[in-house]
């Protein structure tokens, strides 16, 4: 403590003042007065030193605590509820250390999420690639019969289309995350939007012999982004087609009131198992009866596209029979939902 110049300076000044007080009192009132003056001045100095020493000891404790936190030690509640600068300092240090610790935990969590994400994406891309490499090998054989050649080429194209579909959706999700996906609100005719949304899935529906029923009465136009809303609905219909059985049925309904437009997409498949319900809209989550080619991003994307416009997608099992129902709600005016 004596190496601290903040202390040694005032200490010297106190000693000098004590001597001066002794001399002055001595000169004015004789030896006894001089001694009394010196003793009194010395006592004041001692009190001052004691207070200062205690304050410095507290500061040193705080410093040691901070050093231990920096070294990864435990966070303690160092706050006390008193008036004064030292108490305020403790309060602020507590807030800052807690915030920092939380941020570092969040970072660790994010890092883990990123690793999981990379793993999922690589897995989704590698699986079709393996099959494609085999088919490319087979195609390279000069003695391959023509009908086989046509079949493999068809399969290659299908796999490539799946990869393209996946990559486009990943790109959309990452643009949503980065906040650079611009929604372009304009008056939209919803029945037309639903027909447009169904178009990309028609081939898949036909291949599985499924019927698509569109129940979309005309209503007032909705103010929103046509392209991305259609994308959300396409993902819902695609999901329904994947879960409806061969020869099954997918029903899309539109209902509008003053608050919201509700678009429901129903299938007549097995419905959503209870254990999948809380995770349905998580990225890369594949339910227990997910389609073999499913990547688990369609529903996540649909929900995020809806939320970007103040809407919401919810899932439930149909009360009127087996099957799942997804409901996309879009607010008719901002903040209505």
């Amino acid at each position: 403590m004596l190496r601290n110049k903040e202390l040694t300076g005032p200490l010297a000044a106190t000693l000098a003042l004590t001597a001066a007080a002794g001399c002055v009192c001595g000169a004015l009132g004789g030896l006894a007065a001089g001694l009394a003056g010196a003793v009194f001045a010395a006592l004041v100095g001692v009190v001052w030193l004691a207070v200062t020493a205690r304050r410095y000891a507290r500061l040193r404790q705080l410093g040691e605590y901070l050093a231990s936190v920096y070294a990864g030690g435990e966070l303690l509640d160092i706050r006390d509820n008193r008036e004064g600068e030292l108490s305020l300092l403790k309060n602020d240090l507590h807030k800052i250390t807690v915030t920092l610790r939380q941020q570092s935990e969040q970072l660790a969590h994010d890092k883990q999420f990123l690793q999981g994400l990379l793993g999922s994406v690589s897995h989704q891309l590698r699986t079709p690639l393996t099959g494609m490499l085999v088919m490319a090998d087979l195609l390279a054989r000069p003695d391959l019969p023509n009908e086989k050649r046509a079949e493999f080429t068809g399969q290659l194209t299908a796999q490539l289309e799946r990869m393209q579909w996946l990559l486009e959706r990943l790109l959309t999700l990452s643009r949503l995350d980065a906040g650079c996906l611009v929604m372009d609100p304009a008056p939209v005719n919803l029945p037309a939007l639903l027909r447009q949304a169904a178009a990309p899935v028609r081939v898949a529906l036909e291949l599985r012999g499924q019927t698509l029923e569109l129940d979309c009465p005309e209503g007032p136009p909705w103010q929103g982004d046509e392209k991305w809303t259609a994308e959300a609905v396409t993902n819902l219909i695609k999901n329904a087609s994947e879960h409806a059985p061969e020869g099954g049925r997918v029903t899309v309904r539109l209902r509008q009131d003053a608050l919201a437009a509700r678009i429901t997409v129903e299938d007549n498949g097995p419905g959503i198992p209870a254990q999948d319900m809380p995770h349905l809209f998580e990225r890369f989550y594949r339910g227990s009866n997910a389609a073999p080619g499913s990547a688990g991003i369609g529903l996540a994307l649909a929900r995020e596209l809806a939320r970007a416009q103040g809407g919401e997608v919810t899932a439930e099992n149909r009360a009127d029979g087996p099957g799942a129902r997804f409901t996309l709600r879009l607010p008719m005016r901002p903040g209505a939902l």
Binding site: R79, D80, N81, R82, E83, S87, N91
Partner: peptide, 8 residues
Amino acid sequence: ALAIFRRR
């Protein structure tokens, strides 16, 4: 102490 805790 409670008053101080409250305001912080």
